[in-house]
Design a protein around this nucleic acid. Structure first.
Length: 751
DNA sequence: ATCCGTGAGCTTTTT
DNA sequence: GCTCACGGAT
């Protein structure tokens, strides 16, 4: 009966939908009204959503009537690409597909004036917002020693995600800490406003404010977005939930959400799993489709995932199954320490490559924290196995890149005082903290922006003439570029502006390996602008800045290259690999220490493990170390309880130097912390070690070559003073003559 | 203003 | 083990 219905429907459906299974087909073809797709790991979720959109287009729905919201740029790109292969580039590119933040930023930019922002508002990332919190704390006289700024920032952010403004936050503040946070919150918000800037949270909140206060604008977007898709719905927070609800409340309101409650791993960032659990309450007439057939993994891997997630309580009913073969058992690799763990993984990679004809790109090594990548990298590098780190320290977080971005922001948004302060002494312009303080007071008194105050520095009696001249010279330089901003192409503008700032010159003149690296990074950013100019229809510096504010390195990871991928399990969501390693399966690390005694957090960690397991198609390895370096200290730990949640017959322990059984049975000899420690790694013989300690005072003479940490190699030209007053005059080819205090400057005598 | 050493905090995870 | 703010010294 049901099958017949499907068949009937299928008769009218375009051919390309025929490759779908009945559930997938239902999900793709139910285009009207609210729809909840509960999509288990590896059940073809992305495929279904892209087919659904292709189907809508095929039915004649205009591409700009379709909205698809994702969490990462990567997911959005992938979706667009897949749609493009089905309907062509020109149609696909008109579909509104992007991250919450980028789509909302785009809308906000065209509606900015309604909310009192200018369209060229700056977008602050979490580092920027942290430094504003710090600055605010300084002006309010709150000690950063007593109140960690990081904590303040996260309290503010989580308040914003729950749409609690500073007024309400302050009113409801119970303890001193909250009252203090409330004050900082207020000042923080005011400063962002003055700077014509939004943080990530504002991009969501301001959309809601816009829709709330301007019904006609809301209606415009409700009419535009007739078909709304939300990916990873389980990860939406309160604000995202509200925004979606408002958009879908219009006369069209065809809302399709896709998610898997078992893969909710962003609670810490404000994700509210209730949003998906309660979808059917919010939309009583919602259709529900469960995608339960897994096309990705072996039976073994799926059973393990099932064993693990079964220990969580709150779940939507679903049962994943697969037609795939049973597959190999899951290997457990017990190691003595993190280095041995890395070596065991390396060994396994090599033998898998040889035995199963796999290439580096078929492997992923996943871990809980980025810090774990170090040992793994070392191992792979030594063995010359090509690898790539996904995520990690972002290109856009490097100082010189942030400085360049700040310069460019200043160009499009001179009100952006944070950016001004960031770059004012980069290169040094002789405007010190005291002068800046006075200029700031001047700005506050006249209620003008810091930039304007800088421009009128000559009227400020409290600062030195030299500083005033420097301040004005700087603003005049920036102003010259602001004046021609719209008359010349963005790339040309950016390049000549950056030349004029002196930043490039400074880096070049420093002429060290690091500074040339930095110079290159600035150039790379500039060439990104050129790239965008070539790609976009009407390129602008504003658009470029908005775009880079919202991309992460995870999005840029080049998976096309044939390399072993290293990343956190969070970064791995949505990906799949034939062979997956999960490293660091230890109590205190995974689950994290703080989660161990907290049921909810343990459940979230468990979901993260579930995500990790289900990335694997054919083979899964779990490794753990008995001890590892954390915070520069050797830490001992037990194997993770999560490993024990997988039924024994699915596991196979690869004996390392010690067998798993030995450590699982209560060891006869508990590790005695007072006992002399086992030699760790290849211990350095004592004599060698001592000989490496440099003598307290290097024996310097005139004419000898020395090495300085910053200036490099130079020649000693003179010596003076004794004991703590001892000084040397050293000539460095690239830096010239330097007077150095021997007590501080650690000079190495060159052999 | 700039350079250096010190000590605290950091490691969850990201748009 | 690393990074960053801070303080002391020049």
């Amino acid at each position: 009966m049901k099958l017949q219905l499907v068949k009937q429907a299928a008769g009218e459906l375009p051919d390309f939908l025929k490759g779908l299974n009945p559930e997938q087909l239902k999900a793709a073809a139910t285009t009207e009204g609210p729809l909840l797709i509960i999509a288990g790991a590896g059940s073809g979720k992305t495929r279904v959503v892209t087919f659904r959109i292709a189907y809508l287009l095929d039915k004649g729905i205009a591409p700009y009537n379709i909205l698809a919201l994702t969490f990462t740029n990567k997911a959005a790109h992938e979706m667009k690409e897949r749609i493009a292969t089905m309907v062509g580039d020109s149609t696909s590119s008109k579909v509104w597909a992007g991250t919450f933040h980028s789509i909302f930023a785009r809308i906000l930019r065209s509606e900015a004036e309604h909310l009192g922002y200018s369209p060229s508002f700056s977008i602050y990332d979490s580092d920027d917002s942290l430094s504003i919190v710090r600055a605010v704390m300084n002006t309010l006289g709150v000690s950063q020693q007593q109140v960690p700024p990081q904590g303040v920032r996260s309290r503010i952010s989580s308040a914003k995600n729950q749409m609690i403004g500073w007024q309400r936050y302050a009113a409801e503040a119970g303890n001193i800490l909250e009252k203090q946070t409330g004050q900082i919150y207020e000042e923080y918000e005011k400063r962002l406003r003055l700077n014509n800037a939004m943080d990530f949270d504002d991009l969501l909140i301001n959309i809601i404010n816009l829709f709330r206060n301007f019904p006609e604008i809301l209606k415009k977007y409700q009419d535009r977005f007739r078909y709304i898709h939300v990916d990873e719905y389980q990860d939406t927070n309160r604000a995202q939930y509200m925004a979606i609800k408002m958009l879908a409340a219009g006369q069209h309101g065809n809302l399709c959400v896709v998610g898997d409650d078992a893969q909710s791993i962003y609670k810490w960032r404000g994700a509210d799993i209730r949003n998906i659990l309660d979808f059917q309450n919010d939309y009583p007439d919602a259709a529900v489709v469960r995608l339960e057939q897994n096309y990705r993994s072996t039976k073994t891997i799926l059973s393990a995932a099932d064993d693990v997630i079964g220990n969580n309580r709150k779940q939507l009913a679903k049962k994943l199954w697969t037609d795939n073969p049973q597959g190999a058992k899951i290997s457990v690799l017990p190691a003595r320490d993190d280095r041995e763990e890395a070596d065991m993984i390396l060994k396994a990679v090599r033998s898998e490559m040889n035995e199963n004809f796999l290439a580096p790109k078929d492997f992923a090594i996943l871990y809980r924290t980025n810090a774990q990548s170090q040992a793994l990298e070392d191992s792979l590098r030594r063995a010359a196995v090509p690898y790539t780190i996904v995520g990690g320290v972002s290109f856009y977080k490097r100082k010189e890149v942030k400085d360049t971005v700040a310069y460019l922001r200043l160009l499009v948004n001179p009100n952006d005082s944070e950016s001004l302060l960031r770059v004012i002494n980069e290169p040094p312009r002789g405007i010190g903290a005291t002068s800046i303080q006075h200029i700031r007071t001047f700005a506050d008194e006249r209620n003008i922006s810091l930039f304007e105050a800088f421009a009128h520095a000559n009227e400020i009696t409290t600062i030195q003439k030299r500083a005033a001249v420097a301040a004005q010279t700087f603003t005049q330089m920036v102003q010259r570029f602001i004046d021609i901003k719209d008359d010349i192409p963005p790339t040309e503008l950016a390049v000549s502006f950056m030349e004029a700032t002196g930043l490039l010159r400074m880096l070049k003149d420093e002429n060290t390996e690091e500074s040339l690296d930095r110079w290159n990074n600035v150039q790379r950013l500039l060439s990104n602008i050129a790239e965008m100019t070539a790609r976009e229809e009407n390129p602008s510096l504003e658009a470029f800045l908005q775009q880079i504010a919202l991309v992460s390195d995870t999005d840029e990871a080049d998976t096309t290259k044939n390399r072993v991928a290293l990343m956190t399990m969070h970064a791995a969501k949505g990906l799949e690999f034939p062979v997956v390693f999960i490293a660091g399966m230890e109590q205190g690390l995974f689950p994290m220490g703080r989660a161990e005694n907290n049921a909810e957090e343990t459940e979230e960690e468990r979901r993260l493990f579930y995500v990790g397991i289900t990335r694997a198609r054919q083979k899964l390895y779990l490794s753990h170390a008995e001890r590892r370096f954390r915070f520069g200290e050797l830490v001992f730990s037990q194997p993770s309880r999560f490993v024990g949640e997988i039924r024994q017959e699915l596991l196979e322990v690869k004996a390392g130097t010690m067998s798993f059984q030995q450590r699982q049975a209560p060891p006869k000899q508990q590790v005695d912390f007072k006992a002399p420690r086992q030699p760790f790694f290849d211990e350095i013989p004592k004599d060698d070690f001592i000989s490496q300690v440099p003598p307290k005072q290097p024996k310097l003479r005139v004419g000898i070559k020395v090495k300085h940490a910053q200036f490099g190699v130079g020649t000693v030209q003179g010596l003076s003073g004794e004991g703590s007053k001892a000084q040397a005059v050293v000539y460095f080819p690239t830096f010239g003559k330097k007077h150095l205090m021997l007590e501080y400057a650690k000079l190495q005598v060159m052999g």
